[in-house]
Amino acid sequence: MAETATLDLKPATLAKIESLFPKYPDKRSLTLPLCHLVQEDLGYLSDEAIEWIAAKLELEPIQVLQVVSFYPMYRREPIGKVHVKVCRTLSCALVGAYKTCEKLEQALDCKRGHTSADGNYTIEFVECIAKCGMGPLVQVDDKLYENCKPEELDGLIDAIKTAASEGPESADHPKPQPGTPAYEG
């Protein structure tokens, strides 16, 4: 096996990773959890990250790459500071999700599937996020905004812009309160 890559992970991430091993009958089961943890820490899954995870789980890097390339939530590239995901599936589309996405694209000067030139925003269409009665739904990082009607987006756009102007969130974020987008996300 190739020499193990080193990764600059936070101590909290490393501790969390170690705590997972006793929970499964087989190390390979940690592939998805480790990909999540490393991506949350470093922003995306680089070649080095994939090699590091593989070594940690005594797998071949291709086995981790297979997983990373299959699941839509994993990224091989860095993205903008704020990740905006618009649900485009039927229930949300019926109440205007496509128009909502267009409006967001204009307001943030960013095409869906891309990152804005200033590096602040990445907009993506995603499939159903399971709150279909409250659509259109927009998930901004780990916050879920409901009823994002194309005609009433000012509040959401402000929230997205504020998120981009703030520094990176601290690792130990405060407990989200019920009824807030952070709780529902």
Binding site: R28, H36, F70
Partner: peptide
């Protein structure tokens, strides 16, 4: 008996029970 929470990663097919099991085992769903 213990309960462990295992997060998926955005693939619909992992709702199908055997796809889910493959995913839990650390593979494509």
């Amino acid at each position: 008996c213990d309960i462990v929470v295992h997060r998926g990663a955005g693939a619909y097919i992992c709702g199908e029970e055997t796809g889910l099991i493959e995913s839990l085992e650390g593979k494509r769903g």
